[in-house]
Design a protein around this nucleic acid. Structure first.
Length: 427
RNA sequence: GUGGAUGUAGCUCAGUUGGCAGAGCACUGGACUGUGGCUCCGGUUGUCGCGGGUUCGAGUCCCGUCAUUCACCCCA
């Protein structure tokens, strides 16, 4: 019985890691250019934190948490990032040090759902949180930043959905109104939706079931029930987005399964089939009540989270770039040790270098160099050692020159700095 | 959590009414005693997911199980 990775948790192998690192670099650069600083919080938190922030009756808290019991502690692997960051913000009294905190995070999250394309039990999220700015300007700025980032990454078919849930008062009123509208139509709803009528009728709005969609048509919109303050905020967001030239759709049916959201709610989807039956690349919104709920002062907040796996699936596949590596191919016993010395010298000069230690014919060594995607191959045997030279091959150019041993590093550096010939090396 | 599909070499997949386990790619050796990507010739690679059943005989049929995947659900 071979050991496997835990269901829904995947190894990221070296062949794929380049795409991950490239995406992570874009995320960090985007956030840092916009004034966000990284925060790293624990992967494990007290269950109580998620119950209080995400909501006791949510799917995530009820069914999807990986729970750890240790002595008298009840812990959980974090199912999302916002709660932990908010906890850290309160616990370290960041609010007392600066009026506005702009934070970002990047790391693995855990939810025990049935795995599927674009949905895993361990998955990576990157997100930001802004504390202390009541908006709506920062709401719009954040959405605009994300739309531009995804476009620049090359994600096609973006849809930007924006909605407002208003404050607690609006939300309660809307629940009642929606319940009153749907209850007479209970017979037309799917069984699943019917069960939600009492505990969370808003979720029926984004059901994919055609039956539910039909029943929901003509339902009152939450946007009609916003208080004047909520309405002014939402208009501020949409006006700023328009002024920024960010395309968006007002989507009164947009709802999220986390209880903490207030006012602005947004989601960026791709309509392509790349991410399977999931369609959200990122989602977020305002959660003005959470900091206080967690024992901090009354500080408003907004944030979002992006699924790295989903963005990678939605991204165009790129050819791996030919690398600037050197392969050192020794022929014979004497050359073997010398190859190690040469590789060390090259690395000392900042040139990625690998010396062969397995031996074999020159033909197989050259194949090995090709297989690594190396740009240069250094060949040395008894002949070269006797003459104090090394054979320096430019694999891409299919050319070779004899180079005095002492000039090797300098000549290799020159070749690597020059562009590979047209036609390029084989991938 | 519910329903469907699929599990055969490192990868992609064939495998007929049940009758010797296959191909391409990859890897490797040679043609070319020390010159790579193309070509040609050869070679290595298997718990047919796992367990049971039917049968003279099971990759093939039946039952169970696990995994993957698709849809629902959920969400990033």
């Amino acid at each position: 019985m071979t050991l496997r990775a835990v269901k829904g948790m995947n190894d990221i192998l070296p062949d794929e890691i380049g795409r991950w690192q490239a995406l992570e670099a874009v995320l960090r650069r985007t956030f840092e250019l916009a004034g966000y600083r990284e925060i790293r919080t624990p992967v494990v938190e007290p269950i109580e934190l998620f119950v209080r922030s995400i909501g006791e009756a949510t799917e995530i808290v009820e069914k999807q948490m990986f729970v750890l019991k240790r002595e008298d502690e009840s812990l959980a692997l974090r199912p999302e990032g916002t709660a932990g960051v908010a906890r850290a913000y309160v616990a370290s009294t960041l609010y007392a040090r600066e009026p506005v905190s702009r934070l970002y995070y990047l790391g693995p999250m855990f939810r025990a759902e049935r795995p599927q394309r674009g949905r895993y039990r361990q998955f990576w999220q990157a997100g930001v949180e802004i504390y202390g700015d009541p908006g709506p300007g920062c709401d719009a700025e954040l959405i605009d930043l994300l739309v531009r980032m995804l476009s620049e990454l090359g994600v096609q078919n973006l849809r930007v959905l924006v909605n407002s849930l208003g404050g607690a008062e609006t939300r309660a009123r809307y629940r009642d109104a929606l319940g009153a509208f749907l209850r007479p139509k209970a017979a037309e709803l799917s069984e699943h939706a019917r069960r939600r009528l009492d505990d969370n009728p808003l979720r029926i709005l984004d059901s994919k079931n055609p039956q539910d969609q039909a029943a929901v048509a003509g339902a009152p919109s939450i946007l009609e029930l916003l208080t004047p303050e909520d309405r002014a905020h939402f208009e501020g967001v949409t006006q700023a987005l328009t002024a920024l030239g960010t395309p968006f759709e007002v989507s009164p049916g947009l709802v999220r399964g986390l209880d903490y959201y207030t006012r602005t709610l947004f989601e960026i989807q791709t309509s392509g089939a790349e991410i399977g039956s999931q369609n959200a690349l990122l989602g977020g919104g305002r959660y003005d009540a959470m900091v206080k709920e967690l024992g901090g002062p009354d500080v408003p907040a907004i944030g979002f989270a992006l699924g790295l796996e989903r963005v990678l699936l939605a991204l165009p596949q790129t050819e791996p770039a030919a690398n600037a590596r050197c392969f050192v191919a020794p022929l014979g016993e004497r050359a073997r040790v010398e190859a190690l010395v040469i590789a060390r010298e090259l690395r000392g000069a900042g040139i990625p270098a690998e010396a062969d230690t397995r031996g074999g014919s020159l033909k197989s060594l050259l194949r090995r160099a090709d297989g690594l995607g190396a740009r240069l191959c250094l060949v040395l045997g008894d002949d070269e050692i006797g003459r104090g030279i090394v054979m320096l091959k430019d694999l891409a150019a299919r050319a070779q020159i004899e180079v005095p041993r002492a000039e090797l590093v300098a000549r290799a550096r020159e070749l690597l700095a020059s562009a590979p010939p047209a036609g390029g090396p084989a991938a």
